[in-house]
Computed example of a mutant assay.
Amino acid sequence: MLQMRNVKKDGLGGMRMDGSDARGRASSTRMLAALDLFSVERPVISAMDIGAELSLPRATTYRHLKTLCEAGLLLRLGNSDFCLGPRIVQLDRQIQLSDPLIAASRAPMVECLRTQGWDGMLLCSFVRDFVLCTHQEVRPGSEIQLKRARGIPFPMFHGPASLIIAAHLPIGRVRELYIRALEEDGASARALGPDWDSARKRLRAIKQRGFVVSQNEFQTGMTGVSAPIFDSKHGIVGSVSAVLGPAVTGQDEAKMGRGILDCARTITDRLEKRIG
């Protein structure tokens, strides 16, 4: 017989976690937060610094680090220094070969480069409070070099790849992200609008248009256009973007918009078939 442990009914007959489950989830969250401390500029961090930045006792810090090392997510260097572990490389390869969104997007992106004459394309996903490039394609013979390459995060409210995703998030979630962006790094949020009412109106206009075109936001001298990708329940899962070298006219923008929307719809259809 299936037994449910550490679960209690609330006053409405639903289920809720008891204190031990809540504490366990909080502990796991803080343990995984250690991974966020590492960056290109900071590849090696001491156990003491990790504990201090996460406000953890010494014993808890080493227990979490031991667990992450055993999982291969961290690698211990010497007595008390740590870096990201080799298991991440394995997971990255697995994502490249089998991720449903990348698999659904690769062929349509290549076809669009061939038929539309665009220089490059980017596939992006929404991750917590930023947008991450997960795949890119460059047209054979193109001389451009995409600086916002795979694995590089985009600010939530800067650039077409991010804005088209933000426009399709639930209104409460995007408001929370906007207010946080204002508090932490106001530049990109204020570029969307000086206050929430202004930002909401612009996001509504973006959603109604269906795509976003911008100049010099992917990188200097480049025009970018982005459209949303949805899952089978019409939830936003990411965006696909085209990049073109010289600035385009309004008429060319409309053509790019139609092309990127067709590409996004094709990816959405292929994704739905893959995941049912």
Rank of each mutant, 00 (worst) to 15 (best):
Q3G: 13
M4D: 01
M4V: 07
K9H: 13
K9T: 08
G11S: 14
G13T: 12
M15E: 06
S20C: 06
D21P: 01
A26H: 07
A26I: 09
M31Y: 05
A33D: 07
A33S: 12
L37R: 10
V40Q: 09
E41H: 10
V44N: 05
V44D: 03
S46L: 03
D49A: 14
G51A: 08
A52V: 04
L54F: 14
S55M: 11
S55A: 14
L56R: 06
A59P: 02
T61E: 01
R63E: 05
H64L: 05
H64D: 15
L65Y: 03
T67H: 08
R76C: 13
N79Q: 11
F82R: 04
F82N: 08
P86T: 02
Q90K: 06
Q94L: 15
L101G: 01
L101C: 12
I102S: 02
I102Y: 02
A103M: 12
S105T: 15
R106G: 02
C112D: 06
L113H: 05
R114M: 10
Q116D: 11
G117F: 08
L123D: 03
C124G: 06
S125L: 12
F130G: 02
V131H: 02
H135S: 08
H135K: 08
R139C: 13
P140G: 11
E143A: 13
A149I: 14
R150H: 11
G151P: 11
H158E: 09
G159L: 04
P160D: 06
L163N: 01
L163W: 00
L169C: 06
P170H: 07
I171F: 00
I171P: 01
G172Y: 13
R173N: 11
R173Q: 14
R173T: 14
V174C: 01
I179C: 05
A181V: 00
G186K: 03
G186N: 02
A187T: 13
A187V: 15
P194Q: 10
R202A: 00
R202D: 00
Q208M: 13
R209A: 04
F211S: 04
V213A: 08
S214R: 08
E217H: 15
E217S: 09
M222H: 13
G224R: 05
G224Q: 12
V225H: 00
S226P: 06
A227M: 02
I229C: 03
D231M: 02
D231F: 02
D231Y: 05
S239L: 07
V248F: 09
E253V: 15
K255T: 14
M256N: 09
M256Y: 05
G257R: 03
G257W: 00
R258N: 13
G259I: 10
I260C: 02
L261V: 12
L261H: 03
L261G: 04
A264T: 01
T266A: 10
L271N: 00
E272T: 08
E272K: 15
